[in-house]
């Protein structure tokens, strides 16, 4: 299992556009991808779960990937979340 923690820089946290991108990217891998904010855990392949995570501004997000391509999956997820903050 790969674990990574990152701080969201995006002012809106995980807004709809970013959430959609997260779900799309997570769907490309065979590994399970879980996002945790505080005590809430969400399957990154479910838009509803990701939206409801409501990761607010500056929230620290914990990423977990587990499966055959877990290394590639975690890199891709970190990239998506990091890019989200820079695009504003």
């Amino acid at each position: 299992m790969q674990i990574r923690e990152i701080r969201l820089r995006n002012a809106k946290g995980l807004h709809a556009r970013v959430a959609a991108r997260v779900v799309k990217v997570a769907g490309r891998f065979r590994s399970r991808v879980v996002i945790t904010v505080g005590e809430r855990r969400a399957n990154a392949r479910s838009i509803m779960a990701v939206l409801m995570l409501a990761a607010a501004m500056g929230a620290t997000v914990r990423l977990e990937t587990e499966g055959p391509d877990e290394q590639a999956a975690i890199e891709a997820m970190v990239a998506v979340l990091a890019a989200a903050g820079d695009r504003a």
Partner: peptide
């Protein structure tokens, strides 16, 4: 451009197991 993003979100919501 945002219309496209919202259509994406709608499509995903529809695909979500919760729905």
């Amino acid at each position: 451009g945002e219309f496209g993003a919202f259509l994406d979100v709608h499509w995903m919501i529809l695909n979500d197991p919760t729905l």
